[in-house]
Computed example of a mutant assay.
Amino acid sequence: MTASTSPVLDVRRADTRPHTRIEWLDSHHSFSFGHHYDPDNTHHGVLMVNNDDIVAPGTGFDTHPHRDMEIVTWVLQGSLVHQDSIGHNGVIYPGLAQRMSAGTGILHSEKNDAWRRQDAADSSADPVHFVQMWVVPDEAGVTPGYEQLEIDDELLSGGLVPVASGMDAYRDHSAIRIRNKYAAMHVARLRADGVPQTLPDAPFLHVFVARGEASLEGVGVLREGDAVRVTGGGGQRLGTTSAAEVIVWEMHATIGR
Score class of each variant (00 low, 15 high):
98 Q>I: 00
123 S>R: 15
108 H>L: 08
70 E>F: 02
93 Y>S: 14
113 D>F: 06
82 H>I: 08
63 T>A: 10
79 S>F: 01
53 D>K: 09
115 W>D: 10
122 D>T: 15
120 A>G: 15
72 V>L: 08
81 V>A: 07
111 K>N: 13
99 R>T: 05
125 A>C: 13
95 G>L: 02
124 S>L: 10
59 T>L: 10
119 D>V: 08
108 H>K: 06
86 I>N: 03
65 P>D: 11
61 F>R: 04
106 I>F: 08
64 H>M: 07
115 W>L: 09
67 R>L: 12
72 V>K: 02
113 D>V: 09
82 H>P: 06
99 R>N: 02
93 Y>L: 15
107 L>F: 03
107 L>C: 00
110 E>P: 00
92 I>S: 01
57 P>Y: 07
64 H>G: 04
86 I>G: 05
71 I>T: 06
54 I>M: 09
85 S>Q: 02
54 I>P: 02
101 S>L: 00
73 T>A: 11
125 A>H: 15
98 Q>N: 07
59 T>H: 14
67 R>W: 08
117 R>L: 11
84 D>C: 02
76 L>V: 09
48 M>A: 12
99 R>E: 01
118 Q>T: 15
99 R>D: 04
71 I>P: 04
92 I>M: 06
62 D>N: 10
63 T>F: 09
90 G>E: 13
106 I>W: 01
50 N>F: 09
55 V>H: 10
57 P>I: 08
89 N>E: 12
81 V>D: 04
70 E>I: 05
115 W>H: 08
113 D>Y: 05
107 L>E: 01
101 S>D: 00
98 Q>G: 01
87 G>K: 04
125 A>G: 14
120 A>I: 14
58 G>I: 06
78 G>E: 08
107 L>S: 00
85 S>K: 02
53 D>F: 09
68 D>G: 01
114 A>E: 07
118 Q>M: 12
86 I>H: 01
50 N>D: 13
126 D>I: 12
74 W>R: 05
56 A>F: 06
70 E>V: 06
119 D>C: 15
107 L>N: 00
111 K>C: 12
57 P>N: 08
55 V>D: 05
87 G>C: 06
96 L>F: 07
97 A>T: 06
50 N>V: 12
109 S>R: 03
54 I>G: 04
126 D>V: 11
96 L>N: 06
74 W>L: 12
101 S>F: 00
88 H>I: 04
126 D>H: 11
100 M>I: 01
93 Y>M: 14
104 T>S: 05
107 L>I: 01
94 P>E: 13
118 Q>Y: 11
66 H>P: 01
103 G>K: 04
66 H>T: 00
55 V>I: 15
60 G>R: 14
114 A>L: 12
66 H>G: 00
91 V>D: 14
67 R>G: 09
56 A>M: 10
83 Q>T: 09
60 G>L: 14
93 Y>R: 15
86 I>P: 03
89 N>F: 11
81 V>S: 05
73 T>H: 09
56 A>S: 10
63 T>L: 13
57 P>H: 10
61 F>I: 07
89 N>Q: 12
106 I>L: 05
116 R>W: 14
101 S>C: 00
66 H>M: 00
123 S>H: 15
95 G>P: 02
100 M>C: 03
88 H>C: 04
106 I>H: 03
97 A>C: 13
90 G>S: 14
70 E>A: 07
